Simulated assay, not measured.
Amino acid sequence: MDGEILDPDGARERLRAWKGRIDKLAADTQAMSERLRAVRISAADPGGLAEVVVDSTGALVDLRLTDRIQRVAPNLVAQAVMTALGAARATLAERSREVIAETMGPDSAAGRAIADSVGRSLGEPRARAARPDDDEDFDLGSQLGRG
């Protein structure tokens, strides 16, 4: 569009297309949010001492200890709980990425940004940076600045 002025009909059509993309992004984000809130993940430590359940935020919502804990030192029980919790959170991060890709699309910059945020909140060491050039192809700022 380098310096050319849009005719009113062209501007309206472009605005309608942009609004359609925004409406779809909002609907996809709502669906993703609902699906993510419903996620629960359970995991057990390899020694069979503890099983944990985490909710969609990675918070511990249930803990089951087997009777085997009576035969091991308390620090090993604590380690088993922490191991199971780490495994549950890693599985949660992966499941969250799957839900985000299914609802937002695998190439969505917004989806990648959300997945990165989820990964960081669950303690993943390094989340990928979202590429800003993907699904936000309409730059409102540059359009408003023209006149």
Rank of each mutant, 00 (worst) to 15 (best):
E94M: 11
Q70M: 08
V118P: 03
T57M: 12
L144E: 07
G145Q: 03
R128A: 15
L6F: 14
D55Q: 00
I114K: 09
G10K: 05
R120Q: 10
D116C: 12
R120M: 14
S117A: 15
A129L: 15
A80D: 04
A110I: 04
E4D: 10
R97V: 07
D133H: 00
A110S: 05
A84Y: 11
G47A: 15
L15D: 00
V53C: 07
G58R: 00
R95Y: 00
D116H: 11
R120P: 10
L122Y: 12
V118Q: 13
A87N: 04
R120E: 11
A73W: 07
A11G: 00
F138N: 02
R120A: 05
D116Y: 00
D9A: 14
L25N: 10
A109S: 14
L6P: 12
T103M: 09
R21Q: 11
E34V: 10
I41G: 04
G48E: 04
A73F: 11
A84W: 15
D62I: 13
E124C: 04
I100K: 08
D7C: 04
D55T: 01
T66V: 14
D55Y: 05
L60D: 00
S121N: 14
R89P: 01
P132H: 04
L92S: 02
L85E: 01
D107A: 07
D133L: 12
G47L: 13
R21L: 13
G47T: 06
G3C: 01
S33E: 13
V61P: 14
K19E: 07
P125E: 13
W18T: 10
R12Y: 08
R35D: 14
D2W: 08
A93Q: 05
L25M: 13
A110E: 02
L65V: 11
P74D: 04
A31D: 09
A130F: 02
I69C: 14
D134K: 10
A27P: 02
G20Q: 08
L36K: 08
R16E: 14
R64K: 13
I41V: 15
D45S: 05
V118C: 01
R112S: 01
A109Y: 03
I100S: 14
K24V: 08
G123V: 01
T83G: 05
D139T: 06
V77A: 04
A38F: 02
S42Q: 07
E4M: 11
A26Q: 11
D45N: 03
M32K: 01
R37N: 08
A50C: 10
R95C: 06
A26W: 02
E136I: 15
A11H: 04
I114A: 15
T66H: 04
A109V: 01
Q30L: 14
S117R: 10
D67T: 09
I100T: 13
G58H: 03
V61I: 15
A93V: 05
A17P: 00
A93I: 05
R21C: 06
P125M: 03
E51M: 11
V52E: 12
A88Q: 00
